[in-house]
Design a protein around this nucleic acid. Structure first.
Lengths: 162, 162
DNA sequence: GTCCCTATACTCGGATAGCAAGTGTCCGAGTATAGGCGG
DNA sequence: CCGCCTATACTCGGACACTTGCTATCCGAGTATAGGGAC
C-alpha cells in the first residue's frame, strides 16, 4: 500500500493557503516554487482540490487559489480523499463465492468477515484524519517551526501575495 | 491509495489453512482452486507469507503449506504486512526543507507536523488490524456462514487434505 | 518377509513478460487588468 | 479630465507521453514417496 506523492504536496499547499488573506489569491506556480516541486504536476492536484470544493480558483490576471472554506472547517481527511479518491483501500472481490465449495449467492447474506475487519481499520484511519483540521495543522506547524523559518516564510509571502 | 489484490487472497488462504490439521499440509494449487484464483499468482503471495514466518512450507510429494504458529498468535496485521510490506503508506519527502523559504537543515529538528498526523492515523489502522487474530476470523467466518456452505467446505477439505 | 535402492511425481521457489495506474508535462480556453483613445 | 474599448499577459483546466509497481505466468531445484528388487 502506498499513498500518492500528491497527498503530501496537497497538505502542505493547503497549510500555506490557510495563511493567505482571504481576499487574496496565490497562483499554483508560486506554491510550487515555495515547495520546490514541479509546477505542472502540483497544478494537477490543485485541480482535484478545486473540484472537491476545498480550494477555489480565481481566473485571470491576478488569479490563483484560495481556501473555499475556513481552515477550521477543512479536515485532513477532506484533503486526502480529494487527492487520493474516497474508494476503500481494501477491495473485496467476494472470492468466497467462487471455487468448488461455493453455494448459492443467496446464502451469502452476511457480509464477508474479512472485509468487515479491513473496513473497520480503514474507518479508524479516516476517523483520525478527520479529527485534525487544517487550522490545527497551521497552529502545530507554526508552533514547531523555528523563528527564523517563520520570518523567512512571512517575507516570501509578503513578496508574492497580491 | 489501494491495497494489492493479494491481501484479500492471503487473508482467505490463512483462514483456510487455520482449519487444516496441524500435522497435514495443503498445496498452493488446492488453495487456489478453492478460491478460484490463478494458482501461480497465489503461490507468489504464499511465498511472502512463508518468508514472513506466518506459514511454513513442506516440500516433496505430500508437501504443501500449513500455519507456522497457532492461529491465535497470528494477527491480521501480520498477514497484511507480510504481503504488502511494512513501509508507511504516507511518504514524507521533507518538502518543507526545499524552496525559497527554506532555512538550514538543523532548524528542522521537530518532525514534520503533517507527517505526524498521517503516521498517527496509520498507527490507528495497524492497531485495529493487530487486535484481530486469525483465530478470531475463523470463529467469525464459521459463525456467519450458512450451514450448507460449511458442510460443502468440510467435504471439500476431507477430499484434499492428506 | 524385510530392508534397501532407485525412479517418479509432486511440491515449493525464484526469475521472467504484460499491463494499469501513478508521475510528469504540455498547450489551449478564459478572464481581469492596464494602457490607449475618444469624447 | 473621465469613460470606454481593445490588446495583453497571466491564470486555470483538461488532454497527452513516460515510468514505476502491481498482475500474471512459467520453468527449474529439491524432496518424500511408492514400487521393485535383492537378501
Amino acid at each position: 500500500m502506498q499513498l500518492g506523492e500528491g497527498v503530501e504536496w496537497a497538505l502542505h499547499a493547503v497549510v500555506v493557503l490557510a495563511v493567505v488573506p482571504s481576499d487574496s489569491t496565490l497562483p499554483a506556480a508560486r506554491l510550487a516554487e515555495y515547495h520546490g516541486v514541479p509546477p505542472a504536476y502540483l497544478a494537477k492536484h490543485l485541480q482535484a482540490l478545486s473540484q472537491a470544493g476545498i480550494v477555489e480558483s480565481v481566473a485571470g490576471r491576478r488569479g490563483g487559489y484560495r481556501l473555499a472554506r475556513p481552515a477550521a472547517a477543512i479536515t485532513v481527511l477532506d484533503v486526502v480523499q480529494a487527492v487520493e479518491g474516497s474508494a476503500p483501500a481494501f477491495r473485496c472481490t467476494e472470492i468466497r463465492q467462487r471455487g468448488p465449495a461455493a453455494v448459492a449467492s443467496r446464502e451469502y447474506r452476511a457480509p464477508c468477515s474479512i472485509t468487515k475487519v479491513m473496513r473497520a481499520a480503514e474507518a479508524a484511519w479516516r476517523e483520525q484524519l478527520a479529527s485534525v483540521s487544517v487550522l490545527d495543522l497551521v497552529i502545530e506547524v507554526a508552533g514547531a517551526a523555528s523563528p527564523v523559518a517563520i520570518r523567512k516564510s512571512s517575507a516570501w509571502m509578503q513578496e508574492v501575495v497580491r
